[in-house]
Structures are given as C-alpha cells and as structure tokens.
C-alpha cells in the first residue's frame, strides 16, 4: 500500500495574501509529523489545506498538488466528499455533535451507507476502543456527548474521525484546550494510533512535539524552513532561526 501523502508546491491564498508559500513535503506513513512554528506562520492553514477545508472560506484558493499515492486530491476533479473520508480531522476545541455519544460515532458510517445495526454497534465500539474511551462511556452510550468532560469530548472527536476508517489523521492543536491529565491521555493515544495511520499534528507546545512526533517541520512566515527527524530538529537544527524558536526565544 503506497498511499503516501505528499505535497508539491502547495500555495494557499487568502485574497491577495499568500499564507502558505509553496510547500513540498512528504509525510512518512505510520508515523507522526509535527508542524511547529510561531503564530501566523501558516502551519494551521497548511494543515487545513490537506483536506481542503480552506475551500469553505470565501476568498481563499490553493494551488499546487496534494498527492495521496498517485492521485492528486487538489485537482478540481477530486470530490472533497470522497477525499475527506480518507482524511480525518480533529480541532483545538472539542466539537462533538449535539447528539448522543453513540450517534456521534455512528453518524458518519450511517451517512456512508451502513444501515445494519450490529455492524454500527461494532463500529462504535471499535472506534471508542481505539480512542481509549470505551471503558469510560460504554454504560452511557445514549447520553448526550456534551455531558462528557473536555478531555473525553476530544477523544470522542478522535473516535468520530476514526469511525469512517481514514488513512490519515490531521490534528490541529488537539490538546491545547485540555488539562495536563487529559493532554497526556491524548498524547498516549496518538502514539497508539500511529501504528495504523499517518498523523499530522499542529502544536504550539515544544515538549509535546518532542514527545509525540517522529518528524518535525518548522514553519516560518508561510514557508517550510526545516523538516527532519524530530530528534535532529530538537538537538541539532541546521538553521539558527529554528534553534531560536525551539529554545523559546520568540513565538
């Protein structure tokens, strides 16, 4: 299976402003890539462009190619619906649907045509297990998702993203709104999930990037400054700017 995610000269514009300036990147499969950099460096925009969420923002457009295997998903022929099944996404603030825990997970598979109740039950259980939430909620699957704590809600959102069996998972600062205990649970989960998924995570937290990721990409003013194995970026970066950011001198 060579469904490697790769971008080629990817640019994102908001109106006239070029927010992402021609990024070439290849994401290693079954590993975690962290995107770091100061606020406004384009890392979140870049992440959102990978499943074309920027399409929904009026006045934005993106050029270049995003390859999954040999398919360019940035071409106008690719329907975003199909693409977004393959790429799951989780945001900074947990955003479960105003539905029951069960419905939150079963919603996507149902929409994609799975009607069989047993099959759905199985998907719900599998997804919740993968997100390490099953044991906490198995007795109250039909209560509202909003009754969960923030950390649980975020894991529910991860489970929801997993329910449609994506190959790639995009995480946009998934732990920045959570307490330390919930954060460590999410980080543990990421380590578990990368066994079967390609994970791209945006984070402001250097320690977190160092802990969870295998590769790290440093963004600055819309450009990719440096991209390498995490251990190298954090111990021996090749650019002084990277060094300054990582050591907390600005950002």
């Amino acid at each position: 299976m060579t469904d490697t995610l790769r971008t080629e000269n990817l640019k994102v514009y908001y109106g006239e402003h070029e927010a992402v300036k021609g990024i070439d990147m290849t994401f290693a499969e079954q590993s975690v890539t962290a995107l770091i950099g100061p606020s406004g460096c384009g890392k979140s925009t870049f992440l959102r462009s990978l499943n074309r969420m920027n399409d929904e923002i009026p006045g934005s457009r993106q050029t270049g190619n995003i390859w999954i295997g040999d398919k360019d998903i940035n071409s106008s022929e690719t329907d975003v619906t199909v693409l977004r099944q393959k790429i799951g996404m989780v945001w900074q603030r947990p955003n479960p649907f105003y539905k029951s825990i069960y419905e939150n997970i079963a919603f996507g598979p149902k929409y994609h045509g799975i009607k069989n109740r047993k099959q759905l039950d199985q998907i719900v259980e599998d997804s919740l297990r993968k997100a390490a939430l099953w044991d906490e909620v198995k007795d109250r699957l039909h209560t509202s998702a909003l009754s969960l704590s923030g950390g649980q809600q975020q894991r529910l959102c991860i489970a929801r993203a997993l329910s449609v069996n994506p190959d790639i998972l995009l995480l946009d600062e998934p732990a920045s709104a959570l307490d330390p205990i919930s954060t460590s649970k999410i980080e543990e989960l990421i380590g578990e999930l990368k066994k079967s998924l390609t994970i791209v995570i945006v984070t402001h937290n250097m320690q977190q990037a160092a802990r969870v990721s295998d590769f790290t990409a440093y963004f600055y003013l819309g450009s990719l400054m440096e991209y390498n194995e995490t251990s190298i970026i954090f111990t021996n970066p090749s650019k002084p700017n990277t060094q300054e950011y990582i050591s907390g001198r600005f950002g």
């Binding site: 199909v82 693409l83 977004r84 799951g88 945001w91 603030r93 959102c157 929801r160 449609v164």
Partner: peptide, 15 residues
Amino acid sequence: VPKEQKEAGLAMGLS
C-alpha cells in the same frame, strides 16, 4: 450554532 459544528461535518465529507 458554533462554527466548529459545521467544520466537523465538513471534515467528515458530509454534503
């Protein structure tokens, strides 16, 4: 309605 709700739906490939 919080806009995150809509984003979540979009990211799942819903119409």
